[in-house]
Write a protein that binds this DNA or RNA. Structure first.
Lengths: 225, 225
DNA sequence: TTACTTTGTGTACATCAGACACAAACACTC
DNA sequence: GAGTGTTTGTGTCTGATGTACACAAAGTAA
């Protein structure tokens, strides 16, 4: 309930941060911005911002996501709330963090004059991060790994059509371990997560691969691996 | 990151709510308070309150927990943040919700003049709740069910020593389905979640039951069921 | 001593997970 | 158009795990 227990005239600000992931060049990448504002000048951080008066944190996270990447139909879920009183040197700010997953192809990175730079960083080689954003990304990666195993979220990291090899690579890259090809294919097909489209991707100097699509492009709980 | 993107001079308040569970009389119970304050007079709600300026939401949740139940060593974890702008009729309040699990025996319910009443309610027969607390409890129950299956959290619902039948009842009540006795025992023993103490609980007009204890009384991730 | 109640234990069967290798299909080169 | 290179696509066997199931043992109370 929400009636005051402490004297508490608060001056706490509420922000949202969006840990945006994609898989690209064989690595799990997180989108980071480079800050201009003192005292964080030059530091990298997860994109975010103070929420508006009538805005939900989820709306704010989606706004940040589209502003930065141009993508609007991505998976977005609340991660956790970070509220250490000392997390921001400039005052008490609690942040409701979100995780977003976008398909690499769809992204058109947009920078604003507010930031010095915007780019993808491999999660295995992150730069020094402002605030508690190192923890935040770590928690986000853990969540992503877990969800990949027991849901179909991978749909949000791939275009509408893809080969099973591409899907398998998503799993191998994020989980950080090899996956057996035959067992993996049997599994996603038997579980009905993906369905063949009949069409094939020609092109390479090799046997063409059948294209598949997710049966549902929305969160579904299924033990995948 | 946390620099303003919107003009945003905020007057959003931050609260914490604690969904406190116990198992008692063969049911999963949630602790609720009955409110006095208008416009919620007479309504039931999850205990909570606005957080202090220098206080974390977790500290606030623990404070609420001990204030209401007298229990200090319970499992407590962040659940989610609820931030619909209309969730509180009196103004914009976002709430960081926590889940707490306490052993029924330890609890000494304490009421304050702030509330009309404080009591345990079976989660299957809740009264009408204020705010978005119906959703909040529902999400908490889901989380509890999930965690029971793949962690050892049940420790926080039982006293230091207990019989395997009592442990099994916790699982059956919360999961809402019967559990096979022999398979359950083999599982918790083989996994090393609990260990026998050698002592037995005499008393009933029947064969005495051996008392067991959790090997670790802290969160551990293990596939239990 | 008998009746009652709850505890404590083992096995057989079905299902699932994990390891593993080779032929098929295309592009490119000569 | 034959040969080479590269990636796709497929089935079986084995060990591990999950699931179903029934009865003797140990107390108390009468």
């Amino acid at each position: 309930m929400t009636q005051p227990k402490q004297p508490a005239e608060q001056s706490i600000k509420v922000a949202t941060d969006a840990v945006i992931f994609t898989v690209r060049r064989g690595e799990l990448m997180a989108l980071l911005i480079q800050m201009k504002k003192v005292p964080y000048t030059g530091k990298w951080a997860v994109p975010g911002g103070i929420i508006g008066q009538a805005e939900t944190t989820e709306q704010a996270a989606r706004r940040i996501l589209t502003t930065q990447t141009g993508v609007s139909d991505a998976h977005l879920e609340q991660l956790a709330t970070f509220d250490d009183p000392k997390r921001d040197k400039l005052g008490r700010v609690i942040s409701v963090a979100y995780v977003a997953l976008v398909a690499s192809e769809k992204v058109i990175l947009k920078t604003t004059e507010k930031y010095a730079d915007v780019r993808w960083w491999p999660t295995s080689k992150l730069p020094a991060l402002a605030y508690d954003h190192k923890d935040m990304v770590a928690v986000a990666v853990d969540r992503l790994r877990a969800k990949l195993e027991y849901t179909n979220v991978a749909w949000s990291l791939l275009p509408p059509q893809f080969t099973l090899t591409e899907l398998q690579e998503i799993y191998e890259i994020i989980l950080g371990r090899p996956v057996d090809k035959r067992n993996f294919r049997r599994r996603v097909l038997d579980l009905g997560i993906v369905v063949g489209t009949g069409t094939k991707r020609m092109g390479g100097a090799h046997r063409p691969a059948e294209l598949y699509a997710f049966k549902r492009r929305s969160m579904e709980y299924i033990e995948v691996l």
